[in-house]
């Protein structure tokens, strides 16, 4: 544990080659979700409804307009991004760890033609799917409340999925090196919650001091918000390619690193 590269000791860096087993992994999770769809969807719709009613209308009365948007529209479009992040992150931490360690689900899969590359990609696609579901629920609530409208909202959907992938990769990396659930507290408290607070979900990043602005511009949630908010409010995102590139980079780097680390953990 002392060596800084301990986690990579004896790692297999071969390029991942996911196969059709990926879809079987995704489908397994989908089937479980479908069984428990009721409470899951209630959570997906109920939470944002409370946030948008409470903060959007309540706080919005004092705030007025932000960057040309009513506060409820500003907040809703920010939550679209953060919800994909939070949902994909928690699925990639708690659920993946549960399947990897206590349930030994992956050990079962590794006795079949499904291999680590398929497991990691299947899980990432599933984490992103759950992100997509939760953000879409917020979108529907926001439309229902009249905060967002227009056909262009459909363009948000691929952006939700990309945001989910972007956060699924790092979450899987954290899971693959964790010894217990407690370890996740570091990642959530030091990475996810700060992004939630500082990356432009609740107020524009322009409100931050200059040094902090340049720092948050490196963080993926800033780019997810900058991509999704204009799409949700009928505009065209500035620097759209930059945002897509940054989110894709986190997704791909996370995927590769997660494959290497899960290989090390499961196949030694």
């Amino acid at each position: 544990m002392s060596h800084p590269l301990y986690f990579f000791h004896g790692a297999d860096w071969a390029v991942p080659r996911p196969a059709p087993g990926t879809f079987a992994v995704w489908r397994r999770n989908f089937l479980v979700w479908r069984k428990l769809m009721g409470p899951s969807l209630l959570f997906n719709f109920g939470e944002p409804l409370l946030y948008l009613l409470g903060l959007g209308f309540g706080l919005g009365r004092f705030v007025g307009e932000v960057e040309g948007l009513s506060y409820i529209a500003f907040l809703a479009s920010g939550l679209l991004a953060s919800s994909s992040m939070n949902t994909a992150t928690f699925e990639g931490l708690y659920s993946v760890y549960t399947r990897m360690v206590p349930q030994q689900t992956y050990d079962g899969m590794l006795a079949t033609p499904v291999d680590v590359d398929d497991i990691v990609l299947g899980e990432m696609l599933w984490c992103a799917t759950k992100g997509l579901i939760s953000s879409t629920a917020i979108l529907l609530v926001a439309v229902g409340l009249g905060a967002l409208h227009g056909w262009q909202l459909l363009l948000c959907l691929p952006a939700f999925y990309l945001t989910g992938l972007c956060f699924a990769g790092p979450a899987l990396v954290v899971s693959s090196v964790s010894k217990s659930y407690d370890f996740f507290a570091y990642y959530v408290t030091l990475a996810i919650t700060p992004m939630y607070i500082f990356c432009g979900v609740f107020y524009p990043t322009g409100a931050l001091p200059a040094f902090a602005q340049s720092f948050v511009s490196l963080l993926p949630l800033t780019h997810a918000v900058a991509l999704i908010r204009p799409l949700a409010s009928g505009g065209v995102p500035a620097d759209i390619l930059l945002h897509i590139t940054v989110l894709s980079f986190y997704a791909l780097a996370g995927f590769y690193l997660a494959v290497v680390l899960v290989r090390r953990r499961l196949i030694q």
């Binding site: 069984k35 349930q103 030994q104 689900t105 050990d107 079962g108 006795a111 079949t112 033609p113």
Partner: peptide
């Protein structure tokens, strides 16, 4: 693996 069946030492049935 496609041609082999495995009964593991510790059951890893899918509890879900």
């Amino acid at each position: 693996r496609a041609r082999i069946g495995v009964v593991p030492q510790l059951d890893n049935l899918d509890p879900d």
